[in-house]
Simulated assay, not measured.
Amino acid sequence: MLAVFLTGCGASGARVDGARDAGRAFEQALASRNYGTACDLLAPETRAQLEEDEKQACAKALEGQELPVSGAVNGAEVYGRQALVRADGETLFLSQFTGGWRVVAAGCTPLEDKPYRCVVKGG
């Protein structure tokens, strides 16, 4: 996934705004403990993987993930149909789908010897 971010092209302001807004909406849903809305903002594969791993519906599974809750989204970088959104204490990875931007990985923090470790991610 990281290779896509490193090789992509820059994006228009509207696409950057869209990715940033989706990341912000996801963070706000977590902050308000509205896990159903947060699940709606997950990419289909990510949602399915979370439900499979936790053996329960998305909202309940997401509640137990101990994701950092950010008060602010600090920026977004868009490369093709992929985006990286930085929030206080974590990074989100998003992909653009027909219905808009969706979170493919959340609770991501950089590691010294690997690109990122993510709490929630697709398979």
Rank of each mutant, 00 (worst) to 15 (best):
L42E: 06
S70D: 05
A19F: 09
V119M: 05
L50V: 08
V16F: 01
A29G: 10
A38L: 09
C108E: 04
A59L: 11
T98M: 08
E63R: 15
G99A: 09
F5I: 04
G99T: 13
E63K: 15
L2D: 04
Q82D: 11
A76E: 02
A57C: 10
W101G: 10
T46C: 03
C58Q: 03
G89F: 03
R33I: 08
L41M: 04
K60H: 09
C108A: 01
G99H: 10
R33V: 11
V103Q: 09
E54T: 13
D17G: 15
G8Q: 09
L50K: 02
M1S: 13
A38P: 11
V85C: 02
Q49F: 08
N74H: 09
R47V: 12
L6K: 08
A19R: 12
F26L: 03
A72I: 01
E77K: 12
A19H: 11
E90Q: 14
D88A: 06
C108P: 07
Y116I: 01
S70Y: 09
G80E: 05
L30V: 08
G122H: 02
R33Y: 07
L111R: 06
R24M: 09
D21G: 07
V78P: 14
T109N: 05
S70F: 12
A105Q: 08
C9I: 05
Y35V: 12
V104Q: 01
G107P: 07
G64H: 01
F97T: 09
A59R: 13
R15V: 15
R102Q: 12
L111N: 02
L67H: 06
Q96I: 13
N34H: 05
Q28F: 03
K60F: 07
A25L: 00
R15S: 15
A29M: 07
L111G: 02
G89V: 06
V85R: 05
V73L: 08
Q82M: 05
G75P: 09
L41A: 07
R33H: 09
G18F: 13
E90T: 14
V69A: 07
A106C: 13
A57I: 10
F97H: 14
P68L: 15
R47C: 07
G107W: 12
A83T: 06
E52H: 04
A31D: 11
D17H: 10
G99S: 14
L111H: 01
S32P: 00
L92K: 10
V85N: 00
Q96D: 05
W101Q: 10
T109K: 00
D17Q: 13
D40A: 14
V16A: 14
E27Q: 15
V120F: 05
G80D: 14
A22K: 07
Y35N: 12
T7E: 03
G10A: 13
D21I: 00
T7C: 01
A29R: 05
F93G: 02
T91Q: 00
E77F: 10
T91N: 08
A22M: 13
T109M: 02
Q96P: 14
Y116R: 00
G122W: 04
L30K: 12
G23K: 01
